[in-house]
Design a binder for these strands. Structure first.
Lengths: 194, 194, 194, 194
DNA sequence: AATGAATGAGGGTTCATTCAT
DNA sequence: TATGAATGAACCCTCATTCAT
């Protein structure tokens, strides 16, 4: 198992730090290696190439990110609360990890098409969580039954992602966590007065 | 005036085509020049450097994109219809220009931080249009008066952007325009049953 | 005749100014053209190529420089006075023309081998003046008759050139003209005590 | 230590050869690398950039050149003999190294202002040797005590440099070493008959 | 397993020169 | 004569990857 090798994790952690501090294009393999305390060549004993390092960063970090959301939402009984928890956990985790937020929202987006395909694969698990909450909400008659699930999923994910990106680009000046109720309320009630 | 110079436009059009077909990192200056039917050096008579070409592509294309949305929404009387028109025009224009959709949704996002800052400046006009519709809707008592405008704006933009990006990444297999009423409905009514 | 064309001289004068202010490598044809108030292409109506401009600058300016020295030394009766006058005129003329001194001592030396060959041709007239003074001095029994003329010529030219170059590189902080008697004295008497 | 790295010296030697044979402007990094038997990128493991290679060539070669002169003159007892030895060593060393003479006398002078500043710094050691000989000569009452040392230093250096440059530009057709006594004699006795 | 010196392909940009007007 | 827009060849440097030790 990859993850049990200590150097593997050293490299992943170093990569997050280096990318957050130097940007995607300022993160040479040699810089990551140095930050990880290994030789350049050692990177290639644990990763196929540089792209594999970046994908792995995303997989490891987003895997944990999604796992936390899964576990937290599972503890809630109804879809409404689950949605609230998902939003809360999404904002909370990225608020808590300064480096990670920069890396996922800004830097890894500069990767090429192929890398983004792989990133999307990782995100599928997140989208599945969302889909399940939506289905459950409809069954529980908390959500409208005429909703197109993929569309709603895109709305929710697009919104959360946009909000976090804006927050990161504004140098994280305000408290993201305070937005949770308003965002949840917006999803639930929409714009209309009645 | 920049725009009246035919070579300027030739280069812009060539850049869109080359970037759409070769990806951001596969779009060398020489490739763009060849596609535009000019010499490499000619690029530098019209643009400061390669980045300036890319910024200009975005400015010209998104400028027109936003102008169309502004004009169309201005012809509508109430905020509800304006929002509908905005969504419709957003999807319509990107549906209609295969290359442009790829470039704006996928390729230009791979640009570095500085370029993305400039891209965001161009998008401000779009966000202003959105903000004005929202303010108008609240005044007209069509939208709830407890809405946080920046948040709603982020929701709408994030959603539309995510939907278009998904459509492009799915190789534009389905008809984006058919989604307009559902998206509009989603924004208006939210998820709740009542 | 080249010299009667006003544009020819405009370009020469512009070249001296531009090279003095921007250095050899910062003096593009377009910059010289602009300073001369002509179009880039016009340069090529009066000069074969850029190198020809630079050679012509040297020819024109050094031609006048040497002519002044020839005329002044011719008015002196003996070789000793002629040598004194040559040194005086050499320093005087370069002291008086700030731009010219920079161009001849520093910038044109950065030219390539071929250009320097042509520069040396221009300097031959100067060296001939020197040789004649030396021959005359020997005939007049003012100078030792065992002198090797080419060697002495190289000593005198090398010395004057080195002194002026040092003065230019020290940003012309001291008065070059005050050095004339000491330099002349040095040439005449050498280092020995007796 | 730089000098113990074999590649460092390979590159220096290759640079001298390439510059001597192709001229300053014909000496691309790739050409130097090829001549040194290393990859282009290897140059940048040992030198900051191309200019650093050229400065280092001058530092290494002139450093050795000056060291030889220092050691040889130190073995002589009086200033007169030291001056003779300095001239002799100056001519001897450049006579002995065909490539080096071309590089120092012709090609490196085509470098830009910044590089020439650094070259001048290297030469300061040579000028100090000269100054010390002059001071010693005055103390020993072998040289006139009314000499202005900087001026005499400029005369001697300017003369030697001009003589060697002429010899190189004449394709080294005559024996430079035979000139030593005459040059020394000229410095000592000057031009005057008495 | 680990090292790190060495590799070498690849591209944005400048600028002397040309030529249609 | 004069223009100046257009040309396109030329080059330094970076950095992901390899491989002998």
């Amino acid at each position: 198992m990859k993850n049990n090798k200590p150097k593997y994790n050293q490299i992943i952690e170093a990569a997050v730090k280096v990318i957050a501090e130097n940007g995607y294009h300022g993160s040479q393999v040699s810089k990551i290696a140095k930050a990880a305390g290994v030789a350049d060549g050692t990177i290639y004993l644990y990763f196929k190439n540089k792209e594999d390092v970046l994908v792995s960063v995303f997989e490891e970090k987003m895997g944990e990110f999604i796992k936390q959301i899964e576990e937290s939402t599972n503890q809630k009984q109804n879809a409404n609360e689950k949605l609230f928890t998902l939003i809360k956990m999404h904002f909370e985790q990225l608020s808590a990890d300064y480096h990670l937020a920069i890396v996922t929202q800004l830097e890894l987006r500069q990767s090429n098409y192929d890398l983004r395909i792989q990133i999307n694969n990782v995100l599928k698990r997140y989208l599945t969580v969302l889909d399940n909450i939506l289905k459950e909400g409809i069954q529980q008659q908390l959500f409208r039954d005429d909703l197109t699930i993929p569309l709603v999923r895109q709305m929710i994910f697009g919104t959360l992602d946009e909000i976090v990106t804006n927050w990161v680009m504004n140098e994280q000046k305000y408290d993201l966590n305070k937005q949770v109720p308003a965002v949840h309320d917006l999803f639930m009630k929409g714009l209309s007065v009645d």
